Simulated assay, not measured.
Amino acid sequence: MNTLAERLSYLMTQTGTTITKLQDVAGVSYEMARRYTLGTATPRDNKVEKIAEYFQVSPSYLKYGQGKAPEKTTALSTELVTTQRDNEHRHRIDYLDVYLAAGISGIENSDYPEIISTLFLSDEGMARFVGKRSSQGVSIVNVPTDSMEPTIRKGDIVFIDTTINCYIGDGIYAFSINGELYIKRIQKLMSGGYRMISDNQAYPPEIISDEIYANAQFVGKFIRTVHIDVMNL
């Protein structure tokens, strides 16, 4: 990791931190926070200090790579999550095929394997990864494309809240429009309609009119993403 952007992306991946959260931590716009992760903008010293404090690293590590890097750990440790229920891991979260949930059939999805069908989280695991006490309405999905990188890497485990079936504020949603599935960031426009945003700059934003939005079927709202080594579960 030779650059601030690489170290920042590493820390975000390890902690499941989204660009929206980074935006709040640094006190900058969403676009500026995204540019930090891409290396197209460098945070000022006061922003570096805020970000470093949040990730519990030194500003010199974040800015220059000086000092000891945080130890890399599996994002979902077996202390917090397993694939088998026991007395400690009581909260069940099932895998959701978002294509089926969106009513899309006939999809051959080789890049979207059902590697994990069910996870069981401890109370601490629920608090850390889901932010809720109950697993009701929470599902895990995989994301089949790189359009949301670096926020969501292709193949990462993503927790979504399926009780949310409409836009309730800026965030990342899984939804379908006219038989096409999307996992994108949505922002409501003051002029009417919505902006559909991919965090990956290779994918330009698109505008969703109110008429098109009326035909959208929402599967759920993004909670957070984690990268896991399935072999360790």
Rank of each mutant, 00 (worst) to 15 (best):
H91C: 00
P204I: 08
S139K: 01
S135A: 11
S176N: 11
I177R: 06
G106I: 07
V25S: 07
T82D: 10
P43L: 08
A75G: 15
D97T: 05
Y10A: 09
P150H: 04
D146H: 07
K63E: 07
K154H: 14
Y95S: 15
A202N: 15
G192C: 10
V141C: 08
S60G: 06
R133I: 14
G27V: 08
G220Q: 00
S60Y: 03
K154M: 13
Y54S: 01
Y64W: 02
N46H: 09
M231E: 12
A33Q: 15
K68M: 02
I104A: 11
T151R: 04
T118D: 09
V230P: 14
R44L: 06
F222H: 05
R34C: 02
G65T: 08
F129N: 06
G137P: 00
K21D: 11
C166I: 09
Q84E: 14
T20V: 07
T118A: 12
Q14L: 10
Y194R: 07
A202C: 12
G169S: 01
I172W: 00
T163L: 02
S29R: 13
S105E: 13
L4R: 03
L8T: 14
L62K: 08
I140Q: 06
K72F: 12
I107S: 10
I164M: 04
K221E: 01
F218N: 08
I228P: 00
Y30T: 15
D229S: 11
R85K: 15
S117A: 05
T82F: 03
R85N: 09
Q56R: 12
E206Q: 14
N109R: 12
A102S: 14
A101L: 06
T37W: 02
E114D: 13
G193T: 02
S198Q: 13
K21V: 15
H91S: 08
G67T: 04
N109P: 07
N200W: 05
T15P: 09
G16E: 01
N2W: 11
G39A: 10
Y213T: 07
D161G: 10
R153A: 08
Q14R: 09
P113F: 13
E180P: 03
I19S: 03
Y61H: 09
M190L: 05
V98G: 04
F129G: 03
Q23S: 15
A33I: 15
A214G: 04
R92N: 07
D86Q: 05
V48S: 06
G106W: 02
A75V: 03
V158M: 09
H91E: 01
S135L: 00
V130Q: 00
L8A: 14
F175W: 04
